[in-house]
Amino acid sequence: MSTYHAVITGADRGLGFALAEGLLERGWRVFAGSYLPDWPQLGELQERYPDLLIVLPLDVSSDSSVLAAAAAVEERTRSLDLLINNAGVITDKNEDSIRTSQDYDEMIRLYQVNALGPIRTSEAFLPLLERGELKRLCFVSSEAGSIGKAERTAWFAYCMSKAALNRGVRLLFDRRRPEGFTFRLYHPGWMRTYMSGERNTEAELEPSESAASALEYFLGSALPWDDKPHAIDEDELVMRDWQGREWPW
């Protein structure tokens, strides 16, 4: 069996790390984008998979960093099968209502990482993906990007960035699907991650749990929630959560 190649952004910890670990266990060669060089988990994982895991410095909010990462991957492989756009940030300004002063710098920071980051990363890796077998672009979005289901009364920076991401993915889908690319858009659920700075122990899911569902969705045509083989309609873009539920735009 030929080795598949994947790039994962934001793989230092949390969901990104769990996705990397899951792919490595499946024998994939993984290029793990690292934004936190001092965080130890990827180093430990590399000791377990020295031949399959390559750690790349990657800041998805930076054009030059993304381009450098793409060049570094291209030095090691001529094709890429899977890109998982996982990197994302949140802000402690979420609860600031419109009645209070808004932090627009934070809004731009979140937009750069959560919305534009996956788009620029996808664009940078498209040439490699084009030569791959799966040609699959995966995006970790959020229910917070669902306008139809939105019930929050603030969270402007985060919700706007995720809604914009969904639109950007849709546009990429419309442009690239005719060329054979396939897409997955995923809401991972509320996870016990460090996204807010400290590990959220109140959340309902371990990252590994969400990653397991995600990888089934990202890699296969078998939907994760009923163990029955279904052909995912590759010509329809939807956002699904870790339980396989479809979320409205």
């Binding site: 914009a164 639109r167 546009l171």
Partner: peptide, 23 residues
């Protein structure tokens, strides 16, 4: 549509929804 333009308008729709929910 230019992708940034389209995304920004979607962000505006979300903004409108959040303000709607609040106000």
């Amino acid at each position: 549509m230019p992708i940034g333009r389209a995304m920004a308008h979607t962000a505006l729709h979300m903004q409108a929804k959040l303000l709607f929910n609040d106000l």
